[in-house]
Design a protein around this nucleic acid. Sequence first.
DNA 1: CGGCGCAACTTACCCGGTTCAGTGACTTAC
DNA 2: GTAAGTCACTGAACCGGGTAAGTTGCGCCG
Lengths: 337, 337
Amino acid sequence: MKRPTIADIARRAGVSKGAVSYALNGQPGVSEATRKRILAIAQEIGFNANSAARALSGARARAVGLTLCRPARILGIEPWFMGLISGFEAELGAHSYALTLQVVATPEQEIEVYRRWWGERRIDGVIVTDIREDDVRIPVLQQLQLPAVVIGGPGDTGSIAQIWSDDAGAITEAVRYLVALGHHKIARVSGVPDLLHTQVRTKAFNEVCASLGLDNVITLPADYTGEEGSRATRRLLIGGDRPTAIIYDNDVMAVAGLAVAQEMGLSVPGDLSIVAWDDSPLCSLVHPPLTALSRDISAYGAQAARELLNAIDGKKVGNVEAGRVHLTPRGSTAPPR
Amino acid sequence: MKRPTIADIARRAGVSKGAVSYALNGQPGVSEATRKRILAIAQEIGFNANSAARALSGARARAVGLTLCRPARILGIEPWFMGLISGFEAELGAHSYALTLQVVATPEQEIEVYRRWWGERRIDGVIVTDIREDDVRIPVLQQLQLPAVVIGGPGDTGSIAQIWSDDAGAITEAVRYLVALGHHKIARVSGVPDLLHTQVRTKAFNEVCASLGLDNVITLPADYTGEEGSRATRRLLIGGDRPTAIIYDNDVMAVAGLAVAQEMGLSVPGDLSIVAWDDSPLCSLVHPPLTALSRDISAYGAQAARELLNAIDGKKVGNVEAGRVHLTPRGSTAPPR
DNA sequence: CGGCGCAACTTACCCGGTTCAGTGACTTAC
DNA sequence: GTAAGTCACTGAACCGGGTAAGTTGCGCCG
């Protein structure tokens, strides 16, 4: 079954290929009557422009790329990426851009994928996540002149657009809330320490704790996995001077922490209050439901996609703050006994 | 920065475009010395073949499509899809195929996406999930002659390849295990009843229960979300004659069920045993960790991708059983008190 | 030594859109 | 009445790689 081309339409309409192209793209150069006739024929025979041909003649690939640089084990339960992806799609779909996905193991492999995609003109731009300090991907993207949007910051990304949320403000709010409840010994289980937003959070956490006169403040580094979350929680809870509240850098570790507390016979929130970063259905799923720092990840993703499309169009894009974070109190926080 | 083309290579090597094409594709028609020289130049200037040009000249788009037809809320925490995706990628990456993703709301929208992708020659094939009885997508795929692999079955997919796992055997094993522990009142919270694999499981569940002489057997339909899982669990547990064990059709509902039991003051596994379908880190994350029906979803996805690539190559593909399911006992199951 | 066969290329056209430089026909302007 | 301008469209080049058909040059054989 041969799929129709503009030549087929041209033949049936009795005009040239060029006229059909103008008609379909809303360009001037054809009369309104002819345009209608051509559009009707296109509709009738179910015409879709061959994306390859379109991409070849100087135009766009009309696709953007996203790499996921985490082991499949984590990707599965982290709601974050899926939320982000559905946000992208809402925006990309509206502009009939496709999203091309690739799971990679290392930043080096990720760079290779960018090179290949860009070299093959498979994509018009990429969305970069999990940004680190002095990220090796940034100079490569600049050198390739590959349109990109970095999610997470703010950091030094040169000419590349970035979009970030006020993590410092959020963690400050969480600590203030716990202190207002009466907590003095607050600990934190962080994500991967290399990541820029982890550093932002750690800095803000230390600052707000200092300003509120809290001592005994500790941040244990982890890696977003349940295993590490459990391990860190156990370390925090077996000490003699154990914290009465723990803030986790993601929901998965918070749920794991909750399980450890229950396993050790501690009551949540009676003996231990828990705050999760990034609200997700997971937080409401467990008992007690977890107090969380919520933000609309889909909207955040949509905003990122919008910025990327602007960057692809050669528009000036900068440093955008988006995705307001707010505290959603649930059953996992209470005054300490 | 102009990206290099085969014409650039040809100029530098002092040969024609055609020779370069032969050399790069391992075709006969160039001497070994020339081939090496051309490959070296390609390497040096970082050449990647323009995928659009390649796709245009009769070849393949070297991409396959996957649509996700679930609300973002669910997609986020269901490890299933991410596991599947990383499985696809392992296989697709090895053949340098890209994966194009689209989130859709309805099967009708999904069909539209297939039509567009195929019309645009953006993809060479699709992977279809969540198959229903008399699925509306099947006849469309056949009419379009779009290579496809259906995940979940076995069902009536005509000429389209399908890949499925032995769900009936798995649920039989789970029920036998619970009966061996001493349970007589076993309930089940199922996924969306329209889905083919839900029906397979329900049928097998009823059969094994009947054969073991269990009465009081009930399957409550739900939709894989935590909310529905909680609701169904509550309905099961408030009755006078409440079950001592519940089997859930996915991990998310099982975790939600666990939370409901804890909230109602029931001990798991003392008062209630819980079995989750589809093991994932989520099952080991909670307390107690959930006994689960495990299978290697990534491998399952990889197998599906392999079948799809075969279908794209015009090879005969059929009805493949893969992804052996086995029971992984953990802390959520025990003899009833 | 002519002719054959073959390796190692080159030439030229194809894929299906986009785009730009024409080309008539028709209108408007002086 | 004719030059200028506009409109609606045509024809052809182009994007970059794939490939069938044609062209060398060379070795080998009778």
